[in-house]
């Protein structure tokens, strides 16, 4: 009995978590997938009725806007965060005496809730009393910065706040990458008389490819899940101008009472994440099967 217990204790310890994950992750994904194939409205129904919800979804102009916004937001957010993060990391890598303090400053927004970030930027960017008014107060009467209330520009306001929140994190990742490059290679290059900028472009940055990939995955993941930032900053508005898939899904699930739409939009989000994350995870786990 005790031998049996001792032998099986590891499995028994892991079992509850494993079962929880099976049910609450995979079971729930299955449930959502199922419901996305039904005509569920306010209450879930379980008679499968084909891809009607997906047809509705792709025909919905609001979803169209949400997906367009995801491309704009995701694209700009990822690219600018990466470029900015890399730039900051390289600048910080130049033996700056106050590096620690600067790093803390660049990274602190990551500790904040997106709701806090959204609230702050909503105030800063509001045309009545924010930046626009401030610059006008300096004498530039025609200065306009009304992105947050301008349906054509509002999504870019979300991008600004998103970058402010996340670029410091990319900086930290890249800085770690820069510092982990084999010192002897750099010394060898310096002995060969290669200029500093060439050392970066020809040696260090190419060797950081895995970090670029990691940063991309994390940022893409943040972009797809972006929900609270939009809620706090624009509430999805003006109108539906800053709707993202996440806010669309939430609206369908909790204010519109359209479970079918909520489920199918969640599945589409899931598919997008799958397409990005699965190859990455696969290669990560393949590369290091044990340790």
């Amino acid at each position: 009995m005790t031998v049996w217990l001792e032998r099986n204790l590891p499995r028994m310890v892991l079992a509850p978590s494993f079962i929880a994950v099976l049910i609450f992750v995979y079971g729930f994904i299955g449930w959502t997938a199922w419901v996305s194939l039904t005509r569920s409205k306010l209450m879930p129904r379980y008679e499968i009725d084909g891809f009607i919800q997906y047809k509705r979804l792709f025909a919905s102009p609001r979803w169209d806007t949400a997906m367009d916004n995801l491309y704009i937001f995701g694209g700009l957010f990822i690219c600018i965060s990466m470029v900015l993060g890399l730039l900051l990391a390289i600048m910080l890598d130049q033996r700056i005496r106050i590096e620690g303090a600067l790093r803390t400053i660049y990274l602190y927004p990551m500790a904040l809730s997106m709701i806090v970030t959204g609230t702050a930027w909503k105030w800063i960017m509001n045309p009545g009393l924010g930046i626009q008014e401030m610059v006008r107060g300096w004498g530039y009467e025609s200065f306009t910065f009304d992105w947050i209330v301008n349906p054509d520009r509002a999504i870019y306001a979300v991008v600004i706040a998103g970058i402010w929140q996340s670029s410091g994190f990319v900086m930290a990742l890249f800085l770690a990458g820069l510092r982990s490059v084999d010192g002897e290679i750099i010394k060898a290059a310096q002995v060969d008389g290669i200029p500093t900028w060439r050392i970066y472009t020809a040696i260090i940055i190419p060797s950081m490819a895995p970090i670029f990939l990691s940063a991309f995955i994390v940022l893409a993941h943040l972009a797809i899940k972006a929900f609270d930032l939009v809620i706090a900053l624009t509430g999805g508005g003006p109108g539906y101008a800053t709707d993202l898939p996440a806010t669309y899904m939430y609206a369908m699930a909790f204010s519109r009472g359209d479970l079918g739409q909520a489920a199918s939009s969640a599945m589409v989000m899931m598919a997008v994440v799958f397409a990005i994350v699965v190859p990455y995870l696969y290669s990560e786990l393949r590369a290091k099967p044990h340790d």
Binding site: V35, K225, A266, M270
Partner: peptide, 9 residues
């Protein structure tokens, strides 16, 4: 890595 929207309902 899953978007939590998929388990919300």
């Amino acid at each position: 890595f899953i978007p939590f929207q998929v388990v919300l309902l």
